[in-house]
Design a protein around this nucleic acid. Structure first.
Length: 476
RNA sequence: GGUCCCAUCGUCUAAUGGUUAGGACAUCACCCUUUCACGGUGGUAAUAUGGGUUCGAGUCCCGUUGGGAUCACCA
């Protein structure tokens, strides 16, 4: 039997990191076993529907390379793949479930149910409609009275099911409540649509948050009533913002697209989140999606929550940036250059000095802030104990360096560095006594991406000499 | 509150009942060096707690504590 998994997000507007990780596990369970990965949109709650949300889902999945084999846009043998387009199907199955004794018609209003429960926190909703005779109920339905279809739970004792990550879970049937399966607007609830669709779409493994553990016995009851085979359950712990809060949009926590906007690479994000609750059993940490397909196994999924650590993601992102082909990094950096400065610079060379120095693409802006316009710096910057320079040394060095550099014809880092090193030697100065002042003159900053000659190459000859002249004026 | 679940360095995590409890991020120190990075070397740092079982427990069992989830015509 081919393994089939599904990612079934509801289109609420953004791609949550936890959701993406669930999708990834689903994808990997399928792909590690040559199975199918299905995309299904769960839009049964019309109130929560957000325009354009499905596009974000498509776009995100494509960005990280998780291609689906069946879905709303590409179809498949078990469509449609949008729940709102399957509405009549659920009604059909819901009525069938009533006939099978797994559910009943209920004419209580939402308020009736709420009132009864409000009495004591501990009292469960007892549905009076449960005891209506089938004839009576059917008559009222036929008469056009508003109704919902509610699950009927008559079983006693304890329900046992096996979860792939949590092992055997036992829950008393008494704990289960008879939830609504088909709403008065004719739409199914998640509790019902999910079961019907997973069965109809031949889903073999269901991955979802562990908050569904306690309602799983209810789903099993539905499978049982229909005579269907339940899927393998893979409940996963949540991704946390801190020890007690889940990562969530309400907290203003980063979504996938937020991270992209902050200059994180899709591959790095994917690589980082797969490790949040899963480990390969080896010490390898950097994985491409292709490699993950080879090594993933759900047996190595963990059961405790994991805190999302942006520092480690940032480190990993740096690894991915450094591993990029130089041309590729240059391409990715270009849009940032456009945003950060307008002056003409040796951008290819700039990219080469930046690549090992940035951990996110957004770092580019603050690393290059001195390029467009020399910051107004203080001459005391020329003092550096380790380099053995001060304003006097700087003035001397800069005069000489200016002369040497203006005579330079080949403007490469190697030639410039050789020339200034040569100058230092001839003058009996330490390398730093020449290079440090030049770097300050060119940048006006204490720390810069690259050394003096690298900055000179980025800035070009004209601007380099110009900035040295300005420094000399300052020192005069 | 009932029920279910979880618990190893600050964080992500590894450890057929037998290891000096391992790795990674972060942090600190040193090396490299043209500042800063990159890279390299090393250090600090964990089995929540109390009982059992066992020759031997991070690992199995019970309790305690702490945390989370669930108890919607949301998913």
């Amino acid at each position: 039997m081919t393994v089939r998994t599904r990612f079934a997000p509801s289109p609420t507007g953004y791609m949550h990191i936890g959701n993406l990780r669930t999708a990834l596990y689903e994808y990997l369970i399928a792909k590690s076993q040559n199975g199918d990965f299905v995309l299904r949109i769960e839009d049964t709650d019309q109130k929560r529907y957000v325009e354009g949300a499905t596009d974000i889902i498509y776009h995100t999945l494509k960005q990280v390379g998780m291609n689906w084999d069946e879905g709303p846009d590409i179809g498949g043998a078990y469509g449609p793949y949008v729940q709102s387009e399957r509405k009549s199907l659920y009604a059909e199955y819901a009525h069938k479930l009533v006939e099978l004794g797994g559910a009943h018609y209920c004419f209580c209003s939402k308020d009736d149910a709420d009132e009864q429960k409000d009495e004591e926190a501990n009292i469960k909703f007892e549905d009076p409609c449960k005891f209506l005779s089938p004839e009576e109920a059917r008559k009222r339905v036929a008469a056009g009275e508003p109704y919902v279809i509610r699950q009927t739970i008559n079983k006693k004792g304890t329900s046992v099911f096996k979860d792939m990550v949590y092992g055997e879970i036992e829950i008393d049937y008494d704990e289960l409540d008879e939830g609504v399966l088909l709403k008065s607007d004719g739409f199914p609830t998640y509790n019902f649509a999910n079961v019907v669709d997973d069965h109809l779409m031949k889903i073999t493994h269901v991955v979802r948050g562990n908050e569904y553990i306690s309602s799983t016995p209810k789903y099993n009851l539905i499978y049982e009533a229909f005579g269907w085979e339940p899927p393998v359950y893979v409940h996963v712990p949540p991704v946390m913002k801190d020890a007690q809060h889940k990562l969530s949009k309400r907290n203003g926590d980063a979504s996938f697209q937020d991270l992209i906007a902050k200059g994180y690479l899709p591959e790095a994000i994917l690589n980082y989140i797969v490790l949040l609750g899963w480990n390969p059993g080896t010490e390898q940490e950097i994985f491409s999606l292709q490699e993950l397909k080879q090594v993933f196994s759900m047996e190595r999924l963990g059961k405790s929550p994991a805190i999302f650590d942006i520092a480690k993601l940032t480190w990993m992102n740096g690894c991915y940036i450094r591993a990029l082909a130089p041309e590729k990094f240059h391409q990715l950096a270009l849009p940032y250059y456009e945003k950060c400065f307008t002056c003409r610079l040796n951008l290819e060379f700039l990219s080469s000095v930046l690549q090992p120095r940035v951990e996110t693409l957004a770092d580019i802006c603050q690393q290059t802030d001195f390029l467009e316009k020399l910051p107004d710096y203080d001459v005391t910057l020329f003092q550096n104990k380790k380099m053995k320079t001060d304003e006097t040394v700087a003035k001397h060095s800069l005069e000489l360096a200016g002369r040497v550099l203006s005579a330079e014809t080949s403007w490469t880092n190697e030639s410039l560095f050789a020339a200034l090193k040569d100058l230092a030697e001839k003058e009996g100065l330490k390398n730093g006594q020449v290079l440090y002042p030049v770097r300050i003159a060119l940048s006006g900053k204490e720390t810069t991406p690259g050394g003096a000659t690298e900055l000179a190459v980025v800035l070009g000859k004209e601007e380099t000499l110009n900035r040295i002249k300005q420094a000399l004026a300052k020192l005069a």
